[in-house]
Design a protein around this nucleic acid. Sequence first.
RNA 1: GAGUCCGUAGCUCAGUUGGCAGAGCACCGGGUUGUGAUCCCGGGUGUCGCGGGUUCAAGCCCCGUCGGACUCCCCA
Length: 440
Amino acid sequence: MASSPKFQAPKGTRDFFPQEMAVRRHIESAWRSASIDCGFDEIEGPTFEHLELYTVKSGQGIVNELFSFRRAGGENDYALRPEFTPTLARMAAAKGASLALPTKWFAIPVHFRAERPQRGRLREFVQWNVDLIGPPSAESDAEVIGCAILALERLGLGADAVRVKLSHRGAVSAALRALGVPDASMAGAFELLDRRDKLPPEEFAQRAAALGLQPAALARFNELARTRVPLSAGIDGVVAALGVPASDVAELAGLVSVLEAMDLAAWCEFDLGIVRGLAYYTGVVFEIHEASGAERAIAGGGRYDGLIELFGGPSLGAVGFGMGDVVLGLVLADRGLLTPERAVELLPRPDCFFISADALFDPIMHRLRANLRRAGLHARHSAKASRNVGKLLGDAAKCRARFACIVGTEAPDGQVALKDMATGEQRMVAAVELVSRVAR
RNA sequence: GAGUCCGUAGCUCAGUUGGCAGAGCACCGGGUUGUGAUCCCGGGUGUCGCGGGUUCAAGCCCCGUCGGACUCCCCA
């Protein structure tokens, strides 16, 4: 800015001033309460890990997007965590056979990625992670999806505002195989499905052909990539779209029946173009998007059986998802659920705002204010030099105090004026009764 | 790594053919003998992102640079 500050926040990071912090806590509270109500226990891991934890699974390409470092004079390479799953897998592996199954864990960690920031993508962000480790089952898949939906619902997003898009890697790869995609090209096909809406049609067709698809199969591939089936159409719709035996979609069918029983079908749809970029997903995969398609994905996840074993743990199934605060915040703002006015309402509300009408009464005010605080009440006073009661009441109203207490000429006699800011009603009360009068 | 757009007060912005740096809001102080300001008075809070160049004179023109937003790449 004009004052040319010497320091500013690093690129892609955010300063959380009180209002922004209140918004962040609002989102985190919804995440935490939904997790706990769904029976997940909160965990946390280190902010940085050994670099190899991230390279072992993902390969070298990912290193460019890591903030990695070595302690001056040290020999070990570390990286700020770009995601939580490796830490989770490591922690699960560390418990080994003693891990009670199913284990249901959630975390709300800060993550770091050295990417160019753009809308919905920053270099430092908070991501809610919900994971269920245990024998694979439709119930488990439905449980994590239900948890995501519960949090979104608590933030004011309804089934009309977001879509939970379901797919299944096994079912899609069976369909691709039937279309003539060789197993060796499967990863490429998934990548192409993932990018279906970002590529111009000609390039999409060109790349599809390169996978070995004949013209007829190519058309089917294109169709499949864009197939969206409402859950109400039932699994038969998916079977038809994929052109595979019903046995290949059994897991998806199982998931749907649990979601229906949970009364969540209205939130969901099949989207066979959803495959997720990550190589480690093995079965059901899903993404949550804003209903109109605005913004990036709000959340993404799926089943990753075998990953924990990869990190040296027992052979265990697992399913989970991540939901970042950045896109979610944008969606909430887009839908008028996080206006500046609402953000102000999220700030803590004082129980009592003290106004000392004259410096003479300040000591009394200080004592009364301390009494309230000791009683567990939120008490503030004006920092202004003005003794103008009207102005100070304006301050009390601005911070949405429940009561204003005017400490004035009657204070030495043990009386103060207590004003109910909502009703405007004001009465003299004994100072010794102030705590009980203000108590919620 | 590539591209597009944008940098003037805390915020939103105005600033003419180059001629003393501006408005609204916000904020701060005071007044109205102690009551929620659509009241009155006062306060500009600034290295016009930064550095050069042209010019008698640059917020404005030229070159460079830094920063930001957004897009491509990538996306855990």
